[in-house]
């Protein structure tokens, strides 16, 4: 399977969301996510030091570096296999709570991913979001990664329903994630170690929502121009 350098939509000169999200595109997404997390590793850990156990940046950086390396070595054949390989690598190598949480995101996204177009990606991301919610028993407003993923998936669905091209829809999703991330600052944490702090967790941006925003920004960057 080659890289998606060209596709029928582009060849016809029309913006469609069809046939654009293949294994290479998903691999590029994960690579970009890994790059952003690596670049912001210390900032993520600093956010986590304020209300968590000061390991989010280093844990996620280690896990994503392993995931990128696994994709290099295994080069999974189909898109769902790419997401599955990322899931199992994160589960194995992250160590902290973000391992099973991001692992479950990619595992459920892998199972739900249908034909590789933009709508299928949106369905997969929604399944990932629901997996994270179920795994963490978290709800919107609990000051978790869900607070970024929820608005992102809502914005993605809304844009695709309005027939906007995939790159615009993913940009809207990233902006939704960023708004959700910013909104975690005044929240009082109700999950994880931060929840022990109660009211004292307010005034700090949630590290999970911050990395989840990077996940959506990576999708917007890596999948741009593919639809």
């Amino acid at each position: 399977m080659g890289r998606a350098s060209a596709h029928p939509g582009a060849a016809l000169g029309c913006l469609t969301v069809a046939d654009t999200v293949d294994g290479a595109a998903l691999t590029a997404w994960v690579q970009e996510f890994a790059r952003l997390v690596h670049e912001q590793r210390d900032a993520l850990t600093e956010l986590d030091a304020a209300i968590g156990d000061a390991d989010h940046g280093t844990n996620l950086d280690r896990g994503l570096a392993a995931a990128v390396s696994a994709l290099d070595t295994e080069a999974p054949a189909d898109p769902a296999a790419v997401l599955k390989a990322v899931a199992t690598t994160l589960i194995r190598t992250v160590g902290g709570a973000s391992g099973p949480l991001y692992g479950t995101f990619f595992l459920r996204a892998s199972s739900a991913l249908g034909e590789g177009d933009g709508a299928a990606l949106a369905v997969a991301m929604r399944a990932g979001l629901e997996g994270v919610a179920a795994r963490g028993k978290a709800e919107p407003g609990d000051k978790t990664m869900l607070d970024a993923l929820g608005p992102a998936c809502d914005a993605l669905d809304e844009a695709l329903t309005a027939n906007r091209p995939l790159d615009e829809a993913l940009r809207a999703a990233a902006e939704g994630a960023a708004r959700g991330r910013d909104a975690t600052v005044p929240m009082v944490a109700r999950k994880g170690r931060a929840s022990y702090l109660g009211e004292r967790s307010a005034g700090h941006q949630d590290p999970g929502a911050t990395s989840a925003t990077m996940l959506m920004e990576a999708a917007a960057t890596a999948l741009a121009g593919r639809g």
Binding site: N59, T88, I91, R92, T93, V94, G95, G96, G99, P100, G103
Partner: peptide
């Protein structure tokens, strides 16, 4: 180090 691993 300290951590958990679902595959293990």
């Amino acid at each position: 180090g300290l951590g958990t691993d679902a595959t293990a």
